[in-house]
Nucleic acid binder design. Structure first.
Length: 220
DNA sequence: TCGTGGATGGCCT
DNA sequence: GGCCATCCACGAC
């Protein structure tokens, strides 16, 4: 963790571009999460683009609410949401203010702070399982709703930064349909990952939930 | 190693 | 009341 031009955080202009440019450009770069315990560094290996108010897979699809307000704000901020009653997911707001698009950080490889990451993810059996999946990534980094709206361009004072160095080469980047999104949202290749990375979560097709079948009746 | 389904709570219609 | 940008325990093989 030495100083240098590679360690400069990405600036606002980086995020103030179309989300389909920003998403693959984030791959290979290092996310820094500063905690009271110490910093954790993660090399991003898998991301997913959510492309504005017309995207049915996006939280912004049905307009602005208190929860998704950060997505409608200026780029370069973190959007953290709570899902499935248990998990948090970390997104980067992209594009011009008022245009709610973002990139979900789906997976990464921990490069520094393994001990803290393993403490937060005791189920992880090895290093590449620490942040394999968006909820695991957020858990390993200690990210929750308190970080919603954090300025990622604030530098070393902020809880999150993404460093400018070591972007993945274009020939290392693959793309495909998004995970877990059904309907029209599944047809666009808006998921990007680095070829051959063990920390990339396996593709699972969208499986619609069966009505009534999942909830076993309680009582008589 | 793979597939299946339960857990769990805030948000939105 | 149903839907979720998920994870993981567990059983089958």
């Amino acid at each position: 963790m030495t100083a240098g031009p590679d360690r400069e955080p990405l600036d606002r202009a980086f995020f103030d571009r179309p989300v389909l440019e920003v998403a693959p450009d984030l791959l290979g770069r290092v996310l820094v999460r500063r905690t009271p315990d110490g910093p954790i560094e993660l090399r991003l290996t898998e991301v997913e683009a959510y492309a504005g108010p017309a995207d049915p897979g996006s939280h912004a699809y049905r307009g602005r609410t208190e929860r998704n307000a950060v997505m409608f704000g200026p780029p370069g901020h973190a959007y953290v949401y709570f899902t499935y009653g248990m998990w948090h997911c970390l997104n980067m707001v992209c594009g011009p203010e008022g245009h709610p698009s973002g990139v979900l950080l789906r997976a990464g490889e921990v490069r520094h702070g393994h001990e803290w990451a393993h403490q937060r993810r005791p189920k992880a059996r090895n290093d590449h399982e620490l942040a394999k999946g968006p909820a695991r990534l957020a858990t390993a980094l200690g990210v929750d709703r308190r970080l919603d709206g954090s300025d990622v361009c604030a530098g070393a004072d902020g809880p999150l930064s993404i460093l400018s160095g070591h972007p993945a080469r274009p020939d290392q980047i693959l793309s495909g349909p998004r995970t877990g999104v059904g309907g029209e949202g599944a047809t666009h290749p808006w998921r990007f990952w680095i070829d051959g990375e063990r920390s990339v979560s396996p593709y699972r097709a969208h499986t619609p939930r069966r009505r009534n079948a999942t909830r076993r009746q309680v009582g008589t």
